[in-house]
Design a protein around this nucleic acid. Structure first.
Lengths: 342, 342
DNA sequence: TTGTATGCGTTATCAG
DNA sequence: CTGATAACGCATACAA
């Protein structure tokens, strides 16, 4: 990287290093004779000068990068959040450093360290936490020292990391969904829940079943099936469920998959088993990822403004005034053709 | 960012700066007495030392970041590529800096400059180019100086930037698709092409119509409708087409949308117009984005290994031995229920 | 308004 | 094997 340095520009323009710096970056006490500034700018352009962000970071003591940690960038849930984050970051003059963990919690820790090393100004960490005391504690510690060194953090999901959080109304949203489905006449339910330790999965499952219990409807234990939090997990869980209760057993049943990608996997499994979604079985999800616009029948779900979540988390991370703030994201039920009623 | 520095560690451990550096990073002539190294490592851990990547970048003269430029990270086409890039980058010990242009070509230029400033070691630039001499020339120039400064670049898409490229077989793939559809009995065709200047759109359109012409079938001019290269563009184009030729006019027609997201938009438009995709009209796309697994009827398309494209582009960028290399990505036709034949 | 000098945290060169 | 010390490229307090 044999680059043109600021000294080169300064010398070539016949001014001092300091003047060149001020002319190009207009520092705090912005005062360079316009004429001189023009000359500097011109020679900088002529020489193809490109400021060294690393050197600037060192001299200034801060960078202009923001770290984003997601579970899987190819998952529409996260790519929508990423879209919001990049937009907001760009608006704030920051570049986004992307880390995709591939659902490996230990990777989150490693990435926080890397971002710490890069002296990223802020970190947005998206995706549900696991119920793993040790991992959470270590992550919390890593983020804590990151913050103590001047970095700021915002999480999207559960508010258990002691950082700013855009919290998703999992319990309430799932409860609302349960009531809405009950309102459409369903009395028979099944839940495709994620991995046991996955908090988001657990919260949604709980919110759903609790609300049903309050309505006097209990979900039979053999109709709650666990799996991964992914599309394939949903596929497998639905396949399991069908094997367990038979196609007839699902006749008037509404199956709640704790997220949309799982629900889509479940729809595929149902179809392949000869069930007609919306007719011989109801299916609902959670998140309202954009993909849903294009699947048929329309999937009932709980809408979460994902892009907005990314934008807000980014702003929170950047505007943090010390106090830890938790913003609740509203989650609204959207009933579509996948659950017309039994 | 009042961090613990290497000097702190050195002093605390009772060794010199140099020794501390070697103990922690094991430099080229890696030789520190194991016992000493242990002590240094221990105090580093105790003090919570985190190396400053910016300082290292300056001292070493190179960074460990790779820049990724895409049109829209929320588009499954690009998020799949991004997944491949992050995976390959991680394997090479690099972090990915993500830039999403929002389909604004001028943004690509700006991002190349930023990445240049960050001294990113390599840049992967994905997404079809526009037929805009000036913009392309400027981008080419920017990438050229980036390379002259020691950076490496790989593009995914067209090979017109004078850099390593993972090229997508647009013409051939579209031609194959045309022949396959013709083979299924279609004789009536329409094309939802993207924006006029969009090269990928143009190549696919040409490949398709040329192949048809060779089979003695011409696409009527009023059945080629332009729009944006997005899902909504496809929706609009299909709506236009229906308005233009009427629903009956599409009875035995196979509509080729030049990419999958457009095809999905087109399917939605068709449905809303009362057409049954796969029965009253055939629709096909290009790319085989993962989303297709979950839409019904299955969308016929030309499969492009997107994740792999990201991986390969990253490797090319990192292994570049000077010579500009162009890898052709094979594109294979996949016929599904959206085009059963007329 | 402009120039000088120093420091940012590391690595690397060169002696010991 | 270890320790001084000079870069790296830039911003900025301090002088002029």
């Amino acid at each position: 990287m044999a680059s043109v340095t600021l000294s080169d520009v300064a010398r070539e323009a016949g001014v001092s290093l300091a003047t060149a710096s001020r002319a190009i970056n207009g520092s705090a006490n912005r005062t360079v004779r316009p004429e001189l500034q023009q000359r500097v700018l011109a020679t900088a352009a002529r020489l193809g000068y490109s400021p060294d962000a690393n050197a600037q970071a060192m001299a200034r003591g801060r960078t202009s990068t923001l770290g984003l940690i997601v579970h899987d960038i190819a998952d529409p849930y996260f790519s929508s959040i990423a879209a919001g984050v990049t937009t907001a970051a760009e608006a704030a003059g920051l570049m986004v450093t992307l880390a995709s963990t591939g659902h490996r919690p230990e990777k989150e820790l490693a990435f926080v360290d890397v971002l710490q090393s890069q002296r990223a100004r802020a970190i947005v960490i998206a995706g549900g936490r696991q119920d793993d005391q040790e991992v959470n504690e270590r992550l919390r510690a890593a983020l804590s020292t990151y913050r103590s060194r001047g970095g700021t953090v915002a999480a999207i999901g559960q508010s258990i990391l002691d950082v700013h959080t855009v919290a998703i109304h999992n319990v309430g949203g799932a409860g609302d969904l349960a009531r809405a489905l009950h309102g459409r006449g369903y009395r028979d339910f099944a839940v495709l829940t994620g991995p046991g330790p996955h908090l988001t999965a657990r919260e949604r499952t709980e919110g759903f079943t609790t609300a049903l219990a309050e309505l006097g409807t209990n979900v039979r234990a053999d109709r709650v099936v666990a799996s991964e939090f992914t599309r394939d997990g949903g596929y497998r869980a639905m396949t399991d469920l069908i094997a367990r209760v038979g196609r007839e057993g699902l006749a008037a049943c509404a199956v709640f998959a704790v997220n949309d990608v799982m629900a889509m996997g479940a729809m595929a499994a149902a179809r392949e088993a000869g069930l007609r979604v919306g007719e011989s079985v109801g299916i609902a999800g959670f998140d309202d990822i954009v993909t849903l616009r294009d699947i048929t029948p329309g999937l009932s779900t709980v809408a979460v403004p994902l892009v907005d979540a990314g934008v807000r988390a980014t702003r929170m991370a950047l505007d943090s005034d010390g106090e830890i703030v938790v913003e609740q994201l509203d989650a609204t039920v959207v009933l579509r053709d996948s659950t017309p009623g039994p």
